[in-house]
């Protein structure tokens, strides 16, 4: 039962991703071609609201609903992993028009070929896990 809230937030996320059109391959092409403000507008508003939200949460020392410390995103990887890994992900994002969130949302749309993308993404993560120690980080 403790998972039900995550299911509900997930449902909201699926609806938001669809109505925002961030799951659209066409929107991603438009973004990378700099021919529309739509995706940049989404990111700009999200990041601005997100920064404000972080300031408020920290200032008021807000806890989770169960009274625990909130988990803040801490990213401290090395620059090579961010640049190389990030670029590799960017290749996949532009080819499929989907990042990890939207690729699952599209499955809900009945875009069955996205299953190939999902399975291949799991394989990609698996191969990364095997090669991790030999890659520059």
């Amino acid at each position: 039962m403790k998972y039900i809230k995550y299911l509900l937030i997930g449902i909201l996320f699926g609806i938001v991703m669809t109505k925002s059109e961030a799951i659209s391959w066409f929107r991603i092409q438009e973004m990378f071609r700099f021919e529309s403000f739509h995706m940049y507008g989404i990111f700009a508003v999200a990041i601005a609201c997100g920064i404000l939200m972080h300031i408020i949460l920290k200032k008021l020392n807000v806890k989770t609903y169960s009274g625990d410390e909130i988990k803040y995103t801490l990213k401290d990887n090395g620059i090579p992993s961010l640049l190389i890994g990030g670029t590799i992900f960017g290749l996949g994002w532009a080819i499929t028009g989907a990042c990890p969130g939207p690729m699952f949302v599209l499955l809900g749309h009945g875009v069955w070929s996205i299953l190939i993308v999902i399975l291949s993404a799991i394989l990609g993560t698996f191969v990364y896990g095997i090669l991790k120690k030999r890659l520059p980080h």
């Binding site: 890994g85 590799i88 989907a98 190939i116 999902i118």
Partner: peptide, 10 residues
């Protein structure tokens, strides 16, 4: 595309 997503994001 899927492989790049899975490999690159991790």
């Amino acid at each position: 595309g899927g492989f790049f997503i899975g490999f690159g994001t991790r």
